[in-house]
Design a protein around this nucleic acid. Structure first.
Length: 264
DNA sequence: ATCGGTACCTGCACGC
DNA sequence: TGCGTGCAGGTACCGA
């Protein structure tokens, strides 16, 4: 489900939890828990206050008062919900001094991880696409001998872009998903950079894309799916030239593009 | 050191 | 109705 705009929306919707105390933590699913024993992890979290909520790429990091971090990744189907009934895929329940926070994830590709130090997984990520200076982005592009679509999905290159926004940015920039990153010339790197910034900014303003079941922590849907120009529009006419949208696999991921507007 | 391919898990839409 | 197939926003890990 969630890429940078969706995770940003979720992070904003749980921002009011700053200052709340975690009275109890219950972890029900070993698979989504990183770094060991559920009861020990619960014991280390219990009683601490949430000092900050911050997004890093597709991760949400809760900093706890007095040290310690709870790192959350939503995977494909993860949801953080403020209150609401716990269901068959609810894997964690944080009882707060006011309210409750649930972690729900049917496919179990997401994860929760507690660490005393700033998490290594976050430290290894590339820069934020909305913060990286253009010249850093352009010089990194030049050094990569891989397909541009695969590179945009690589979280060590830039953090937060997933399949939807990679396809949408490449369409806006007029670049074929199979183009080699290091061989983009002339205006193309700049157009790609600007397209990424524009599509992410617009998507955040729309509360993200709700493809099937994505909602923020208050259960609100996003509406950026209404603005998708290529993603999951295979066979439909291109909004610019009316050519049917094509689909190819790049690194085993569906990639949607206009064969006329996006040249290699 | 970088890659591309595969595995992980559940649910849904589709054709038969 | 049910069954098999393919597809889905994710990352981690493997061998080349």
């Amino acid at each position: 489900m969630p890429e940078l705009p969706e995770v940003e929306t979720v992070a904003r919707s749980i921002a009011p939890l700053v200052g709340r105390r975690i009275l109890a933590a219950e972890f029900r699913c070993l698979r989504v828990l990183r770094g060991g024993d559920p009861d020990r992890m619960a014991a280390r979290i219990q009683g601490r206050r949430i000092a900050a909520v911050k997004r890093y790429g597709k991760f949400i990091l809760l900093s706890l008062q007095g040290g310690g971090y709870l790192l959350i990744h939503l995977g494909m189907t993860g949801r953080l919900l403020l209150g609401g009934p716990s269901g068959k895929h609810t894997h964690a329940v944080l009882t707060l001094d006011r309210g409750v926070l649930l972690y729900d994830d049917s496919r179990q590709f997401g994860c929760l991880e507690f660490s005393e130090e700033f998490p290594e997984r976050v430290a290894k990520l590339g820069p934020e696409p909305l913060e990286v200076p253009y010249r850093d982005f352009a010089s990194a592009l030049r050094r990569r001998k891989t397909r541009i679509k695969a590179l945009l999905l690589n979280q060590a290159f830039v953090r937060g872009i997933g399949n939807i926004y990679a396809d949408e940015a490449l369409f806006r920039a007029g670049i074929h998903p199979l183009a080699m990153a290091s061989r983009l010339r002339g205006e193309r790197p700049r157009r790609l950079f600007d397209a990424i910034v524009a599509v992410l900014t617009e998507a955040i303003a729309a509360g993200g894309s709700s493809i099937s079941d994505y909602v923020d922590a208050q259960g609100r849907k996003g509406f950026f799916q209404l603005s998708h120009r290529v993603y999951q529009r295979t066979g439909e006419p291109c909004v610019t030239c009316h050519t049917p949208i094509h689909r190819v696999l790049v690194s085993q991921r569906s990639s949607h593009f206009c064969p006329k507007c996006q040249k290699r």
